[in-house]
């Protein structure tokens, strides 16, 4: 099922590349060798916007700078296999395969989840790209079909189980708010990395023993940076709404992001 969803994203990548005038080998080779949706789309965007090789490559690699972290998180999966399998497995390391592996507790199931998911995603991503290239001209604007909503939705669905843990959820919502806040000012890919401040804040909040219960509503109460308490407070409120209601949260957070973007 995730494979089909990724196939849909692959279709949109192929179709976007072709409809904006790239030769067919570009999306096809990228999907085979890079195999990272965000990086491929970012590099393509920059190239089509007139950016050079260096800018396109840098943006793609910054977007992929999270891969070593995922690699460390699933290192037990890739550490227990022989080198050829490890090299192949490394190529299969993507957000979804890492998320699937991390959702499994047992080592054997983790490994199976990682490799099956990774291989399936690779096949579907490339089939999707091929289909998108073929259908590119006929389809017109992929945005009209809403295909751009598929990729974030897939990631959201994968991360939902991990969000049940309150501390992780607070860190994640804080991180997301930070990423949104700095998106207007930073080059693509960096805001997501800046979001890791959310982990540090949550760790600091949890580590000051005793104050955890009381610290709840205020989040990282007593953290050193002055920006922290306010930002944290705001995102916690929206965070509360996200779980049950959903809609209000997004309205709130991107009201702010939108305002900054327009400013």
């Amino acid at each position: 099922m995730v494979g089909l969803a990724i196939g849909v994203v692959g279709v949109s990548f192929g179709a976007i590349a072709i409809s904006r005038g790239e030769p067919a080998w570009v999306p096809l080779t990228m999907s085979l060798t890079v195999f990272a949706a965000g990086a491929q789309l970012a590099a393509l965007d920059i190239t089509l916007g007139g950016g050079g090789t260096a800018a396109a490559v840098a943006a793609g690699l910054v977007l992929n700078a999270r891969l070593p972290l995922f690699g460390l998180a699933v290192a037990d999966v890739l550490g227990g296999v022989r080198w050829p399998a490890r090299l192949l497995g490394s190529h299969a390391l993507v957000d979804q395969s890492a998320a699937f592996a991390l959702a499994q507790r047992e080592p054997a199931r983790r490994r199976a989840a990682f490799f099956v998911c990774g291989a399936l995603l690779y096949v579907m991503w490339n089939l999707g790209t091929l289909l998108g290239v073929v259908a590119g001209r006929a389809m017109g604007d992929p945005g009209a079909l809403g295909l751009d909503a598929a990729e974030p939705m897939v990631l959201l669905a994968l991360v939902l189980p991990a969000l049940r843990e309150p501390r992780t959820r607070r860190a994640a919502l804080l991180g997301a708010a930070i990423a949104l806040g700095c998106t207007p000012f930073l080059p693509g890919g960096l805001p997501v990395l800046v979001a890791l401040v959310g982990v540090a804040a949550a760790a600091a909040g949890g580590g000051t023993g005793g104050s955890r219960g009381a610290g709840g509503p205020h989040g990282t109460g007593g953290s050193h940076d002055t920006g922290g308490p306010h930002g944290t407070g705001g995102s916690h409120d929206t965070g509360g709404a996200r779980g049950p209601g959903g809609t209000h949260d997004t309205d709130g957070s991107h009201g702010a992001a939108g305002a900054e973007g327009n400013a």
Partner: peptide, 19 residues
């Protein structure tokens, strides 16, 4: 690390759906 992964993915969801 596990929390970092979740935070990164959530930030990716937020930025890629909203911006």
């Amino acid at each position: 690390l596990s929390a970092s992964t979740t935070v990164l993915l959530c930030a990716l969801v937020a930025t890629s759906s909203l911006t």
